[in-house]
Computed example of a mutant assay.
Amino acid sequence: MRGNAIVPCKAVHGPVSREVRNRRLATSTKSKSFCSEDRKVWEPARHLCLLLLLLVSVMASACGLYDRDEYKAIVMVGKRSLTAEQLKREMRRLVADQEIVSEDKAQLRRTLVERIVDHLLVLEYGREKGITVSQEEIDSVVREIRQDYEQADFQEILIKRCISLEEWKEGLRDQLLTRKIIESVLQSVPPPTTQEIRAYFDIHSQEFKNPPMVKVRQVVTRTKREAQGLLRRLSEGERMEELALHHSIAPDGKMKGEIGWIRQGEMEEEVEKIIFSLPVGRLSSIVETSYGFHIFQVVSKRAEGVHFLPEVASEIERKLFSQRWEEFFSEWLKKIRDVFPVSINQDLLEKLEWA
């Protein structure tokens, strides 16, 4: 399990220079045997060191250092176990990553522990089946992810999450392994048939109603004066595509201002009223929003209607497949609990302070 250190720690004694190593080596090999005077000093010191070690061990045992709750196994799944400290880290990570919220702390704790147990069951199954993730697979995914970030941005994300690069890679390995195991389990789930897809469409046809839609192009400027100048040029016959490409500050300017198809209800109410009232090809007046000053042009329109089955067959297939996976996976988890015993120390769990 991952810790929360920001950077990896060096060993207590750390690396030493070659000069220091050589000096230590020279000192330790100066003589093959102790002279009598050396022995007189060394022997009492050696016994004293052994005595101190023995006392530390006895005191640790007497004070319960090795019996403290945070070092005891609180969750055991097959051959895997989590101490209280490890469980707390996993619960906090789940809440942070998945934004799980509940006012009932006891219920939230039960939900988190169940999810962690399910995860450990998956890993245990993978271990038994010999499913692994190679270093090459991890390095490939790391390269893909890091291509999307500047080095400084990537380091900032790690610091905000209070983890080191190695801890992040270990978490990535865990995710890749979990996905690989689940994919191997779900391979046996058959896809929905054509008859099942058609039956779903017949029963749920209202889900596939198509609201009114417009295909829109726009040009956006920082100032109203710029927008007025572009609107004048458009009215004189210049093309919206060219002006958007060279003058629009919106990201869609690179695509000649084309926003694409917009469903009714997706945009700000004032903007929506304007673009849905425009005839195809007509230019809007200048519209001010928090993003700048817009000029819109409707390229095409679609009336409200219902999709035909061929248009939505792939969507229905994905939906049915997803439902089937979830049902299969839920039943599979119940079955492997009989294969890998699950044990939770409820007394320690009740006392666990993690939030």
Rank of each mutant, 00 (worst) to 15 (best):
W261D: 11
L352A: 01
L309G: 07
S184K: 13
V216S: 01
L112W: 00
V141Y: 09
S290H: 04
D148C: 05
G78Q: 05
T178N: 03
E90P: 07
E266D: 15
S61L: 04
R239G: 04
Q107K: 11
S277V: 09
T289K: 04
S314V: 11
S285F: 02
K79S: 15
M76E: 14
S248V: 00
F321G: 08
V216L: 10
E266N: 12
E128S: 02
V58R: 14
R282Q: 10
P44V: 09
D38C: 02
T194W: 10
E124I: 06
L352G: 06
N345W: 12
E37Y: 12
L172D: 13
V16G: 11
I336M: 10
R222C: 14
R198E: 13
A303T: 15
R110V: 07
Y291G: 01
K30C: 01
S28C: 03
I74D: 01
V133H: 12
L55N: 13
W261K: 09
E315H: 07
F201N: 00
Y125T: 04
H307L: 12
M76N: 05
L82A: 08
E350I: 05
M91D: 12
A313V: 10
L165F: 12
E288T: 14
E124L: 03
G260H: 04
Q135Y: 07
V122I: 06
P212D: 06
I344E: 11
G130S: 08
R24I: 14
R179Y: 05
E114D: 10
W261L: 01
S322N: 09
L278G: 01
A244W: 01
L243D: 05
R110N: 03
P212C: 12
G305Q: 11
M1Q: 14
F308A: 14
R173D: 15
E167P: 12
S31R: 09
L25K: 12
F293Q: 05
R161C: 15
Q218G: 00
L94D: 08
